[in-house]
Amino acid sequence: MKIMHCPLNGPRNISEFVHGGEVREMPNPATCSDREWADYVFYSDNQAGVITEWWLHAPSGYWFIAERHTVTDEILKTYDPSEIFNQRVEFSKEDAAAPKEATA
């Protein structure tokens, strides 16, 4: 069984983890086109190479981020999500009127 290094708990059997999908940038739901939204919700790049994914260590309820090579299945590094997500995300009604930078 594969072993994954949890940033909080160290090396553990992969069976202790739950996959949470790729880390993807959400287009601004108030301003993006239907097509952009459909792309975000339904399409996956399926790229051969290093991808960034959400993983949950189920026994401790801890979400973190892993970089994994999809061809070799090698996990290159894992880290706390605060390294990417370090600011409070806001949604506001004004989004609909004035497009702004995509959130998340």
């Binding site: 059997n13 069976s15 202790e16 026994p59």
Partner: peptide, 12 residues
């Protein structure tokens, strides 16, 4: 402390 799985349930 180990936060892990024992007998397939979560344990501390």
């Amino acid at each position: 402390i180990a936060q892990t799985s024992a007998a397939r349930i979560n344990v501390i």
